[in-house]
Amino acid sequence: MNTVPESGGRDQRPPFPLRDGIEFVILAALSLITIFVIIPAETTSGDELGLSPGLVPTVCAAAIGILACAHFLQKLIKRTPVEQSSGPSPLTAICLIGSTIIGILMIRYINWEVGGAILVILVSLSLHERRLLRLAGGAAFVALFLYIVNHLGI
């Protein structure tokens, strides 16, 4: 974006793209860690037969790092106006993820019917459902569904 001179000669360029900068740092760091730590530690040489197993993962990780750098440079040069973080707060998503994990743990340690019912109740509560009848109905429906799936061996 071009610099627009104002009467006072102040630079009207949008500020440094901080969010893109953080994204770049994270991606570049992950890319380097993958190339120099994870891939060497987690791939075994194929005894010189054919190509190295680490070839494609290394190329991919390097390409991601390079592209992240290119994207950041592009943002830095263009200095497009910073996009406000759009969308609702991620708190709901975190609650939904937490509810799902608790439900799965209940499935693992109790059984499918109880775990599924708890999962539905927790997810509904995360979505601010407070009507008891709805909560109980939803839980009963899912418990019945899972009972049928389990006992019919679908």
Partner: peptide, 17 residues
């Protein structure tokens, strides 16, 4: 593509990541 490389290497069948 990177995530698809997790598993056994198609040539040497050695574990990868």
């Amino acid at each position: 593509i990177f995530l698809a490389t997790v598993g056994l290497d198609p040539e040497s069948a050695t574990p990868r990541m």
